[in-house]
Write a protein that binds this DNA or RNA. Structure first.
Lengths: 359, 359
DNA sequence: GACATATGCGATAGAAATTGTCGCATAGGG
DNA sequence: CCCTATGCGACAATTTCTATCGCATATGTC
């Protein structure tokens, strides 16, 4: 259906193209264009590309943008969708990242280890945002490993710490709004279902910060116009709506300081460092020698075959947790207060079992 | 110093350029070229680029490649070095990744959380390989946050699990060789300083797998022509040299199976799942409700104010460690064997303190 | 329902960027 | 000291790119 009837006379008066000092404009404009493509569910129309490119200094006609978008979609496999009279462009969210600086096989391997390490540490909705990178790593390793004795997948293993908890399910849309609000200092209207409550309650929050702890992400925020921050687990939000209003931030609020002062989340208290003295059984000592508690840790073998380990460490809740976890493999020698504390805790724990010998 | 004397007559007989069906070849060739640039300490000469591009189907003269490499180095800031008569091209290893599919602010935020989570979990030499991505995330967040009330850095916090151990220092070159050998099934000649030994010993290893555990990476490998795999902590290698020889892999070796069978690294034993019954103090129960042990976990409040929690879990060493870490906040009700075990462990731990009341 | 409007897209020609070619300079290697 | 591989400036022939036009189509408005 060629409808070229051709205009008889056409102004050849062509708009003089910008004479940029540095060249390669076409390639650069195209790369810029590709980088503008948003990830689903966000999309962008051709005209929006045109405008953004104009802002970036690439003065071309819409037709050129159209052509480029169409041509490169075949090469890079991003998608389009006709809505109304415009075409909306986007990356499918499960597509691998494509780096101009490509990933080395070694970096891909580490990225794969990182992916597995993070499984227990971040909600799936959050990790999903990194999926393009993990995908890229997998693809790099796959393409690398043609004639291999074994697949790279059979060569990697990560041993997680602690039992594998179930991860709370975070709503992706809610998460997205919360992150955006946090970064852009906007208020949000939320429905939050508190612990033990069965109905979500509406409120307006001023996002102040995000805390990630053992696989749960919390939003620290003030509600309405109160000035006391509270924390809200991300997976308890049922609906989140960005508001136009700018969020109000308590005068001089600082997340670090806030967490330390309120002792929220068992953050390393930073009450100061203590000189920890431990007697450690041989089998447990080995891993401490492998990974010292501090750079200046000293280790001395005792007659008993145990090891006396001394190190300067932060006095935190996490430290107590770790010591208790080692069970009979460790004895705290000093500081005396910690020793008493641990001993007390062990006795309390043991005593819990005593009254109930019957059951 | 213009030395153009100009040849009087020049064959305009120009090599017909390939007529590829899909176009945009120039842009694609350049992107391909950029993706070929290795990261320092690897480098590539202009001729190597030319050859590789030819292999990839981009038939152009070396001069074109030269020109492109030079032109784009100004835009993308990769570096060159004259060695002999060739120019060697490379990315500085601290430069940010540049993605064709650019990172969203939310993904950048999660990548930043991931970076902090990983600090304790992977050696610095390994994390350094991911630095370009972290850098990219930081740059994305920086550029995003012009007129903000507070920097994004003051809005994020990660609470690590356990005390912050010192991380063993892995030699980057050694690590790189080991990873490459592992991925390419090559033997390596290594100098390894075993635990407690003060001198490194030479040997030839057949890399079989990598295990990451609590921040230490181990290489599982057979030595010389033995068939028993051993594990070697990456930070104990002092020198690693890739050999040309292909590595030998024990018949039917499988890392997963090997780790499970030998119980190396306290890997989740997978001896089967058990029905865990715990009585948990209210304050500890809250986080278990937030992050259940398993999807079907049941929680019941007892008259005592404690919570009876039941869940189907893997019976692992890590589970014991976790239970002990909770101290007096938890009492194991069942299975009976585990209950006995934990009680025994608590008593043993407590008894360690008794004989030494004097000190 | 008719019209105005915005967008998509084929075609085309003129303009500009691209690239093959040549000549020379330079730096190692034998 | 010559030989060879590489880098690079210059240039012109093309190729590629892109502004422009015309028309088709879908949507919103009156």
């Amino acid at each position: 259906m060629s409808r070229a009837k051709l205009s008889p006379e056409r102004k050849p008066a062509r708009k003089k193209r910008r004479s940029k000092q540095d060249d390669n404009t076409a390639t650069m404009r195209r790369i810029a264009m590709l980088q503008m493509i948003p990830t689903w569910p966000k999309t962008m129309t051709t005209s929006e590309f045109h405008e953004k490119l104009k802002l970036a200094g690439y003065m071309v006609e819409p037709r050129t943008v159209q052509r480029d978008l169409l041509e490169f979609s075949q090469t890079f496999h991003y998608l389009s969708e006709c809505r109304g009279r415009s075409i909306h462009w986007y990356w499918a969210n499960d597509r691998a990242a494509i780096s101009i600086r490509s990933i080395s096989p070694e970096a891909a391997l580490v990225l794969n280890l990182a992916e597995r390490e993070l499984q227990g540490l971040l909600p799936s909705a959050a990790l999903k945002l990194l999926e393009p990178y993990f995908q890229q790593a997998r693809e790099a390793l796959d393409s690398n490993g043609a004639t291999r004795l074994a697949s790279w997948k059979d060569k990697l293993q990560v041993i997680p710490r602690g039992p594998q908890f179930e991860k709370p399910r975070v709503d992706a849309a809610a998460q997205s709004s919360i992150f955006e609000a946090l970064l852009c200092d906007q208020k949000i209207r939320v429905f939050y279902r508190g612990r033990g409550q069965d109905r979500a309650k509406e409120s307006v929050l001023n996002p102040l910060g995000i805390v990630s702890r053992h696989g749960v992400i919390y939003l620290v925020a003030t509600a309405w116009s109160y000035s006391d921050p509270f924390h809200y687990a991300l997976h308890r939000f049922t609906r989140v709506e960005l508001m136009d209003e700018r969020c109000s931030r308590p005068e001089g609020f600082n997340l670090d300081r806030y967490l330390k002062e309120t002792r929220a989340f068992d953050l390393p208290t930073g009450q100061g460092r203590i000189r920890l003295k431990l007697d450690v059984a041989a089998e447990a000592a080995l891993s401490l020698i492998e990974r010292p508690l501090s750079a200046e840790q000293s280790v001395r073998e005792l007659q008993s075959g145990e090891f006396r380990i001394e190190a300067q460490v932060e006095d935190t809740m996490e430290l107590r947790w770790w010591i208790l976890g080692l069970g009979s493999n460790v004895k705290v020698i000093g500081p005396a207060s910690l020793r008493r504390e641990i001993l007390g805790c062990l006795e309390a724990a043991r005593n819990r079992y005593l009254p109930s010998v019957k059951d």
